[in-house]
Design a protein around this nucleic acid. Structure first.
Lengths: 247, 247
DNA sequence: TGGTATTCGTCAAATCGTTGTAAGCTTTGA
DNA sequence: TCAAAGCTTACAACGATTTGACGAATACCA
């Protein structure tokens, strides 16, 4: 799943039901250009969209403007120190996971990190994999599953945790992408969702060519889940707008 | 995607699957006000109720009066030392989980902690997430004391305590890593588990191998435990997602 | 109301990603 | 020092996803 970083365009004004965010954008704040580049590559090859900033001031601006899903923050920064950035961000949004990069000497102070409000840290030199693991864990943690894991309507029932869908009690096999699409639609039932939004939220794309990809997945879902796929009841087309799922 | 036929439930929204939510109050015993505040924030944003005390004496009183679900205890305390508090509490209520905070120098000897009766410890500086994880683990541990230590299905039986697996009554030798993987899967039966999650839960941060490693362990488990390893029934692949264990 | 432009549904082919597996290498512990 | 366990690598096989063409449906506008 390839990704290119481009400016984020908020598509929703309000934040409705919990939204499934498979791949978030990561804000990397790091002043050393070499390290910055390496980090970008690390996360991008893992399918994350990456935004980079080189100093604390820009980081704060960037955080305000683009609402990243997680932040990787070097403690050693020019102008505004990493610590201050961390505190500031945490005070604005306590649930946004921040993973701190620090030289071993920086954290000699016993509980500094805790006071900063950072969620996790790795000390330089660190293994890329470990950083990745920690960021992923941080993301997973905040993207907490909504309480309701099971839904049913019409003759369909879904168990999001087990990734099982049944129709008239009989199992229906959905592929990974189909399932994610379905899940997103169900969790945003009754709301009109544009293809762009689907691509952003389900596919994690930041930019993309014009594509029939979404349509194809809707097609598959209709074939598998609608009583009469040729006149869909649940997966509705809203012409010129996108799709809408209704129970 | 594995699906098993079960009766169709026509209600609209079925009751939520049991979600592990923070329950109970955590008693934080810490004399440094800044750290105390940070700890409070850490646990509270996670949904725990927090009670704080600054010295050993008050901690003991508090423990008696309010019966917390777990205790986070700094070893460095004024008046009554943390060690004594720990011993005292453990003698009064051995099953109450205690996670100890200690400077690295304090625990040159890990054995000491065990003597104290502490369930777990983190050394400063610690990652907030790690502390959280350990407290959660400690809670989980005691929360499901009536833990099933023996499971069986198909022609397999497992004794988690003895770390023994038998197939058709005959012992099967699993390596440590295989056993851990197996255990995690069994305890999360029916749920789809990503490689990442397995890596985090079974392997942990410090050694974070490649995802191919997981595949190999699943392969071994299938070879050792499936009737027909080439068409696995229990260790199912969920393409694009991970694995799922089904009894 | 008819013509035109846009958007959507559908299909098959091509691409791309994921998984299973074996073999070899590294680490660990007796 | 050796054997066992664990990890990495490579690659084939498989399946999922994307693409692009094209006709059908819908909206727009004179």
């Amino acid at each position: 799943m390839g990704n290119l970083a481009t400016p984020f365009v908020p598509s929703r004004t309000v934040n409705p039901a919990p939204v499934v965010r498979p791949t978030g954008r990561i804000l990397v704040v790091e002043d050393d250009p070499a390290v910055q580049k390496a980090l970008r590559r690390l996360f991008e090859t893992e399918g994350y969209a990456v935004e980079t900033q080189s100093d604390g001031k820009s980081a704060l601006d960037s955080f305000q403007a683009s609402a990243p899903a997680a932040i990787v923050l070097d403690l050693r920064l020019p102008k505004v120190s990493g610590s201050d950035v961390c505190k500031e961000i945490k005070s604005l949004n306590p649930s946004l996971p921040i993973v701190v990069l620090s030289a071993a000497s920086d954290v000699s102070d016993k509980v500094l990190l805790l006071e900063l409000g950072a969620d996790d840290y790795v000390t330089k030199p660190f293994s890329p994999r470990e950083l990745l693991a920690r960021v992923r864990a941080a993301l997973r943690h905040t993207a907490r599953m909504p309480d309701v894991q099971v839904e049913s309507f019409d003759d369909i029932s879904v168990d999001f945790k087990k990734m099982e869908v049944k129709r008239e009690g009989k199992p229906v096999i959905l592929t990974a992408q189909e399932f994610k699409t379905f899940q997103f639609l169900v969790r945003n039932a009754d709301r009109v969702i544009s293809r762009d939004e689907l691509l952003n939220e389900v596919w994690g794309y930041q930019n993309y060519p014009s594509t029939r990809t979404v349509d194809n997945h809707i097609l598959k879902l209709r074939q598998k889940l609608e009583r009469d796929p040729s006149s869909p009841v649940h997966f509705r087309t809203v012409h010129g707008m996108g799709y809408k799922f209704v129970r």
